[in-house]
Amino acid sequence: MKILEINKLVKLFGGLAAVSKFDFYINQGELVGLIGPNGAGKTTAFNLITGVYTPTSGSINFLDESIVGLKPFVINQKGMARTFQNIRLFKDLTVLDNVRIAYHSHVKYSVFSSFFRTKAYYEEEKEVKKKAIEFLKIFRMDDKKDELARNLPYGQQRRLEIARALAAQPKLLLLDEPAAGMNPQETHDLMELIAFIRKEFDLTILLIEHDMSLVMGVCERIYVLDHGVLIANGTPEEIRGNPKVIEAYLGEES
């Protein structure tokens, strides 16, 4: 079953096509990679899918429903969460609060309850805190829960961002260069963690990576963007041997 399907997606920035005629789908439970050299339009594609940008034309269907023109928070509530290439944590809030905020859409007590601290407030807050700490445990960060996000080391900030996205209980998780700036050991651990949460939470994951070799190992299918255009898609083996892909990457280095 296709959980996300994109047809002929176009985004123009003042006449310049950041993404053009992008076709894409991802099946329930798949782990798909989106790769391409710098400036290929990968992050723009993410911003279009999550509603941060509105497409110039084309369709995006999530769970058999068009999400074009919906606001990011609505799309999130439909079951999509993401991380950002340049980490966007709530820096002056604690680690625990970062995760708790992701629960917001699932909290049912009213504003009245929060003013007067009704029974519903206490019960749900207790539950949210418990769940948030459980998530932090998976990421081995529960001992840091009262620290401000800004004081965490870089690698942990990346992990916290994933924990936060996961806490929103998405069906589809979008990770934008989750391993950027990590050393090989950290990257390896992270990939194991991603494999683990995927199984544990029955997730569908779309991953942007700049580093091709990294994606080859974990993804089932790969899409390759260059200058906003889809130049290839297929299994890692197919991508590895594709001359267009090699050219795009070599072209960048020369």
């Binding site: 999130n76 950002f84 966007r88 944590l89």
Partner: peptide, 10 residues
């Protein structure tokens, strides 16, 4: 803290 992150978190 961050409007864009907040909005994408629902």
């Amino acid at each position: 803290e961050d409007e864009i992150a907040a909005e994408t978190m629902g």
